[in-house]
Design a protein around this nucleic acid. Structure first.
Length: 141
DNA sequence: GCCAACGTTGGC
DNA sequence: GCCAACGTTGGC
């Protein structure tokens, strides 16, 4: 029953800018069963935080599930799945991992607790807490 | 560059 | 089926 998610990507390999350019992307190459199970639960229209891992770890945008799971085209094994994601909107300001770790509302986030998972559910509370973190910086302008 | 966390592999 | 060794991810 999850409606919110978070996916990670190394911006050097495939970043938010690439998603904007190509409009949509097949989220392939996931080779972890837990992450795969999460892909399988995604429904069309679900919102997905797009996270950049690596040098400047932060959430940079919101994507949307445009096609539900199908076999990963990069694998012969039917157990591996992909979804199709499209850019929905950028965050006004990215939310850094540092800020996420500082926020007590986000203490239980899988991003913090299970740092290696690349596709994870986000609760509704977490989703809106993250949105407010991104929007709050607006006020300073 | 290091290290923690965690997944996978292979010997027994 | 256990566990040690090893590989990978990802933060710092």
């Amino acid at each position: 029953m999850n409606n919110f998610w978070l996916v990670k990507s190394e911006p050097k390999e495939y970043g938010w800018e690439d998603l904007l350019k190509t409009r949509s992307a097949t989220w392939d190459g996931v080779r972890n069963f837990q992450a795969r199970n999460n892909l399988a639960c995604m429904k069309k229209g679900d919102l997905v935080y797009f996270y950049h891992s690596g040098k400047n770890p932060e959430i940079v945008g919101i994507a949307k599930v445009v096609k539900e799971h199908f076999q990963d085209p990069t694998s012969q094994d039917p157990r591996w799945l992909s979804v199709e994601l499209a850019a929905d909107k950028p965050l006004t300001f990215p939310v850094t991992l540092k800020e996420i770790k500082k926020d007590k509302r986000l203490k239980e986030m899988k991003l913090v607790k299970q740092s290696r998972l690349s596709v994870m559910p986000v609760t509704e509370e977490e989703f809106y807490a993250l949105l407010s973190l991104s929007a709050k910086k607006d006020v300073k302008l």
